[in-house]
Design a protein around this nucleic acid. Structure first.
Length: 506
RNA sequence: GAAGGCGUAGCUCAGCCGGUAGAGCAACGGACUUUUAAUCCGUAGGUCCUGGGUUCGAAUCCCAGCGCCUUCACCA
């Protein structure tokens, strides 16, 4: 805090005392029956003066102009629609104008008006119409002070540009950058759509533990914490998979969880240490049932955003009109790499050309390297989502193999513009294979990097009989990024992790 | 974790081949009963991220640290 910040705060605190001296509570209180500003602005503003509707609103003061014994105050609330800037034609934060006249409101309201600051919260009652210059306006009859802002708000025109400042003051970002609130709303809409769709399909939402004794279900470094009473370390979950599958054993035939998972890895425009996953499992289904479900799920989300079936992303437009193409991994591989994925030597040679060290590598690892370097860039050029199915088995330890081709795992990924949006399997329900796979995975790797931790209790659950099932995982943050045309994950998470702010004073 | 870029008033930004710290908005005082990024007159506001170095002199050049951004690695 600098001394100028202190002086801003001191000046506003003085006004707060002055407001108290008027007999007004500077922190406001319950204010019933106010109309959302967005609704007020939809009212007919052109009625004759005596027919003008009486309205009551509450909002944040975002602009404040005094003209002698008149004061023009612009209020904002979360329903205020965007409006077009006359010069730049860009959408900007909308607002509702309030006109306060000294004669019309009298005392103590007029004294209060003189003490208002940008950022204060104000309730207004009055008639809604137009001023002489044509601006939709509430002609104030009664003011109710609803709360003081002791700190100055950002510049009314330039707003907030500094990314760090926006992230550290997300509450201001929501007010002054309309896109931020819009994205938050779209995220909420997407989550709602997913829940409604799964509900309609007979799925139930469950809550499984966040604290795990064994961090399993994915390959990632966990966060470690400690339980004092039990005297044991616990891990924050890195996936939702294993508890949900236990529920399949328990007879919950269609379950899902949409929840936070935690991975102790790098932070980037696409990675936040905590992020939201959707995982769902359907008994007696397989990965093809998951493909159908994924398609309708995504299409419903797109439609729910009310932009038809096409959405922009950067300089691209993605067409989500179903059906999405479905291509097998091997087919795409041969098409773009030029050799069959079963041709071990051919793959080794092709990978060598890309500078990839192939020695001692599992053939499937080489294959997947080629897929990433040759096939994925081609997928990124498509203007519609594409399902890629039937993956090399070694890449997918928790996946059922194809009965007639055990080197192939029944898995698909949904790619949109090269991003992996969804990942699904026919789940492995054979406890013997599961246990072997766990052990194989554990064998060659340092413990902290092992692909899947041995979870004896999970294997025991499978031994009691898990139904054959399809399972699906979707990274919700990335889905929201894609559907809201957002390039950084921090902008689809309201409070992304930041290093704690250094405080200059002790 | 690595490399590159950035850090100046409450906010948005100039200034950067070294020579007294600048603007707009916000704030403060004043004028105005139809403004709307109101206007007009006036005033105040700075650890130029932090610490060290070079220099007669550093916001500016060098080194280190901190924070953020971008790219890469790990991963979703």
């Amino acid at each position: 805090m600098s001394s100028t910040t202190d002086s801003f705060e001191a000046s506003r605190t003085e006004k707060l005392r002055a407001i108290e001296a008027l007999g007004i509570d500077p922190w406001g209180s319950r204010f019933d029956g106010h109309m959302p500003i967005g609704e007020v602005l939809r009212l007919d503003a052109d009625l004759p003066e005596e027919q003008r509707p009486h309205v009551k609103v509450a909002g944040r003061i975002v602009l404040n102009r005094s003209a002698g014994k008149l004061q023009f105050i612009d209020l904002w609330d979360w329903t205020t629609p965007l409006r077009k800037n006359k010069e730049t034609r860009e959408e900007e934060r909308g607002k509702l104008q309030v006109m306060v006249g000294q004669r019309q409101v009298g005392e103590p309201s007029w004294s209060l008006v003189k003490l208002l600051d940008l950022g204060d919260l104000l309730g207004v009652e009055g008639r809604f119409g137009r001023t002489k210059t044509g601006e939709p306006t509430i002609f104030a009859e009664k003011l109710t002070y609803l709360g003081k802002s002791l700190l100055p708000h950002p510049d009314k025109h330039s707003g907030m540009q500094d990314i760090e400042f926006r992230l550290r003051h997300r509450y201001l970002d929501l007010i002054y950058n309309p896109e931020t609130l819009d994205r938050a709303r779209k995220r909420i809409q997407i989550l709602k759509t997913i829940r409604r769709h799964l509900d309609e399909k007979g799925f139930v939402e469950v809550e499984t533990p966040v604290l795990h004794a064994i961090a399993g279900g994915a390959a990632a470094r966990p966060f470690v914490t400690h339980h004092n009473a039990l005297g044991i370390d616990l891990f924050l979950r890195i996936a939702l998979e294993l508890p949900l599958k236990r529920l399949l054993v328990g007879g919950l035939e269609r379950v899902y969880e949409m929840g936070r998972v935690f991975r102790n890895e790098g932070i980037s425009p696409r990675h936040n240490p905590e992020f939201t996953m959707l995982e769902l499992y359907q008994a007696y289904g397989d990965y093809h049932s998951m493909m159908d479900l994924t398609e309708t799920l995504i299409v419903n989300c797109v439609i729910s955003l009310e932009h038809g079936s096409k959405l922009p992303y950067g300089d691209r437009v993605v067409d989500y009109t179903p059906p999405f193409p479905r291509r097998s991994y091997g087919e795409l591989f041969e098409e773009h790499v030029g050799v069959a994925m079963t041709d071990v030597e051919g793959c080794r040679a092709a990978a060598g050309k890309t500078g990839f060290a192939t020695a001692n590598k599992h053939p499937d690892v080489i294959v997947h390297h080629l897929f990433e370097t040759k096939v994925e860039p081609a997928l990124a050029k498509l203007d519609q989502p594409i399902f890629v199915f039937d993956y090399p088995a070694a890449l997918c330890p928790l996946t059922k193999r194809k009965r007639e081709r055990p080197e192939i795992a029944e898995r698909f990924e949904l790619y949109v513009l090269g991003m992996e949006l969804a990942n699904a399997y026919t789940e492995l329900n054979d406890p013997i294979t599961q246990e072997q796979t766990f052990r194989q995975q554990l064998a060659g790797l340092p413990e902290e990097e092992s692909m899947a931790k041995m979870d004896e209790d999970f294997v025991r659950a499978l031994k009691h009989g898990m139904p054959p099932a399809g399972g699906l995982g979707i990274g919700i943050d990335r889905l929201v990024m894609l559907l809201t045309n957002t390039t950084t994950i921090r902008d689809v998470i309201l409070f992304p992790l930041l290093r704690p702010e250094a405080r200059p004073r002790s």
